[in-house]
Design a binder for these strands. Sequence first.
DNA 1: AGGCTTGTGTCAACCGGTTAACATACCTTT
DNA 2: AAAGGTATGTTAACCGGTTGACACAAGCCT
Lengths: 325, 325
Amino acid sequence: MPTIKDVAERAGVSVTTVSRVLNNRGYISEATRKKVYKAMEELDYQPNEVARSLFRKRSNIIGLIVPTVAHPFFAELTAYVETYAYSRGYKVLICNSQLDASKEQEYIWMLRRNQVDGIIMASHTLEVEEYRKLNLPVVTFERFISSRIPYVTSDNYQGGKLAVELLLARGCTKIAHMCGSLHLDMLANQRHRAFMDVAESRNVPFFTVETDINVFEIDKYEQMLLALLTEHPDIDGLFLNSDIMAIAAMKVCRKLGRRVPEDVKIIGYDDVSMASLVSPQITTIRQPLAEMSKLSVKLIENMVEGRPVEVENCLPVELVERETT
Amino acid sequence: MPTIKDVAERAGVSVTTVSRVLNNRGYISEATRKKVYKAMEELDYQPNEVARSLFRKRSNIIGLIVPTVAHPFFAELTAYVETYAYSRGYKVLICNSQLDASKEQEYIWMLRRNQVDGIIMASHTLEVEEYRKLNLPVVTFERFISSRIPYVTSDNYQGGKLAVELLLARGCTKIAHMCGSLHLDMLANQRHRAFMDVAESRNVPFFTVETDINVFEIDKYEQMLLALLTEHPDIDGLFLNSDIMAIAAMKVCRKLGRRVPEDVKIIGYDDVSMASLVSPQITTIRQPLAEMSKLSVKLIENMVEGRPVEVENCLPVELVERETT
DNA sequence: AGGCTTGTGTCAACCGGTTAACATACCTTT
DNA sequence: AAAGGTATGTTAACCGGTTGACACAAGCCT
């Protein structure tokens, strides 16, 4: 691989001059500039970002930790984050934690060793202390860790509220909410809070199904839903914490001969592409994933540049009514 | 951030000794080794991989270029590649080309500047010349570029054959295949070759629908399928080049009142998780994505280590019959 | 004529870590 | 006693690029 020395020789100038041209610093005549660019092209030279990173103490890399990028939500999140980050001059190292705390810790250490400029954490939270020691810009996604770590979230309470109110507006009289483990202090728990608040205020009987924190297995969702709907065949409204869970619910309903939305109305969450792809198309609470992703990157960038940032970054959600309600 | 110098001072040894301990090279007494590790822990020191990369001329980074990681197939591919690569000591830079040739070229340059050890290319191919100039291990995914660039693929012809034969075995008398643009020299075109060969050999009328190369828009799939099935209402078998297309086909059938599989039998491709999640569950040709991903990483690793590799790496496919046939 | 600006080169140090060569000291074995 | 092995330190160079300080030359303006 050609180096700056090769370019200098080819152009007949000094290494310092080539560096001046590369960085557009100092006095440079047009003739010299052209000569240097010509040499770079002839040698097919591109500056070594590793060497530059070492000197500048900045890698222009963002680490993105997700539970698994195979999950449609995190797949779309990753696509938005990378697309926007790249447009801002950043590269994205993707890490799949599989919701394993020790693996998450390993990734954090790896990202630290690789001098990433910042980390977008969309996975399980470690102890607060681990983040404090990082000395590195961190933005969490739908997770509150401490009042010193910025996080991007959407209005989860409003999302839960919109969902339950629609179920009730559509005539549901017995509803259920499937969510993650409520023992984990996640911002998404507010959806459940809203679910309960509204159901209780309207005297509507409700059930809660908590999936195990470490399970992304669709089979599990289906088993739990099957058990729920078998035990309570009069449940006529389901609110699920993701579109994927909603799809699983549709499948279980079909298996039980329960028509959607005639017999059971279903509302998912996120509004991933799959929600409008399947039939019937899923009514869902849309999180502004593109905006949230862009905001995550912006927060990292601001922190890297030393600009002040808000700790809480909450975006509005939107009810997207389709065919399952 | 603490450096090796800080560790040396804290441990009361030389930088060279710390380096000897870090790399387990040269004579080192147990007492000194303990002392150094203790200092590293006390200072929360981790070696700077950027500095190491510069010296070793190796970054342990693999660049993965996909059309978009938001697409379920590429999401799962990315998850497998990253998971396996990480277990082998590699980090993965994710790049979404959006099937834009100029963006693809930009990413290749970026990855080159960042001294990645290799590139797994799962996106649109550039001109062969661009790859030859790279001087860097490249493995393509489902794409043949030249006899000097290894590629990982599955038995596309067999996949097409299995699909059509199943359609015919299930009594289909008029079938259609939806695939990408056949003008692009893709290995997946062999599925269509098999589709035609079998249909022709059995005197079964068939149609082909080519999606525009640069479209991942589900709406387009639906429009094309709607037009096809409206114009040819007697088509009773559909073979589609991805499970996502298959889901779109199911949706269109539902819209037209065509029951699946009673009126129209559907076979997808890939066997992404979604294929078994939706209802009815999709019959599909399963590509061994986990193995293909692992193989991609192994090929990169072998090329990096200077070991000989096969150019053609073709894995078998498998018919997974579910509810749409 | 002198001062200022433009343009380029030289030199050295640095970013963090690696490593070869050699020096020194101590211990063990022949 | 001598040779070889163990253990640690010193020195210097390197990986590729950046950059400040200064030198030197040429041209322009006051």
